[in-house]
Amino acid sequence: MIVGSSKSLQTDNCQLTTDNYSKMKLTLKIWRQKNAKSAGKFESHQVVAEEHMSFLEMLDVLNEQLISERKEPVAFEHDCREGICGTCSMVINGHPHGLMQGTTTCQLHMRHFKDGETIAIEPFRAQSFPLIKDLVVDRSAFDRIIQAGGYISVNTGQAPDGNAIPIEKDQALDAFNAAACIGCGACVAACPNSSAMLFTSAKVSHLAQTPQGEIEAQRRVLGMVNQMDEEGFGRCSNVTACEAECPKEISVTNIARMNREYLSASLTSDVMK
């Protein structure tokens, strides 16, 4: 029998027991900038964190602290906090999403830092990601790249049966691996050239590897690369920092595939412009 709901997830005794976890004193060097027009600078703050906190929860603690001092909290973007929405956009000690490979900022936990450590936190920096405030940047360029062809032109209701066209399992898996991109922009942030090739190629590569997407593959790659260039992203020089920093470990083989697709589309398609 269930009787009473005296014990629950958030009762106060949970506060007592969490004292078992070790605490750490940290110095945060955080980039503060009111908006795109004003100049920014680093600000230092002390914060006491616990080892089981996520990095964002540590920032929550800082913001609560700032609010209690009636100061403006640090603006940073975040949403799902489970590593899939791609909203977080900060560079931690020089690494987009921090040092842990294959991990987004929200899944980075404080146990990977040391007591007494100084942590530098900066926004993603790139000409095509204009700064909005503090650690928040505008990544709408990615949306425009997708709008330039990152889709399959099929209206609702036109589809044949899902099993009408078999797709080889490994190819489907390859397509999936490319499609796993969360559009966070870490690739651009990590690239010394601020190139968006990994992002763009992931979508080109995903769709080019499905029979449904192959049909307009040439038009797609021309459109998306053109938009990527117009947005002012830098030119890829195959540094591969994008792959190393990508929280979803998207491979640069996608860039090679896009290069291939672009070459053949430029040289053989009927598109004259």
Binding site: K29, G234, V239, T240, E243
Partner: peptide, 30 residues
């Protein structure tokens, strides 16, 4: 062009991780 794409503000902490240590270091300094 790439310097311009990087924007006016540079990272305070600079590190670059890449697939291959030597190639990546070279790539940054091409």
């Amino acid at each position: 062009k790439n310097r311009k794409a990087r924007g006016s503000e540079k990272y305070a902490v600079k590190v670059t991780r890449g697939a291959d240590g030597v190639a990546t270091s070279a790539a940054k300094q091409m």
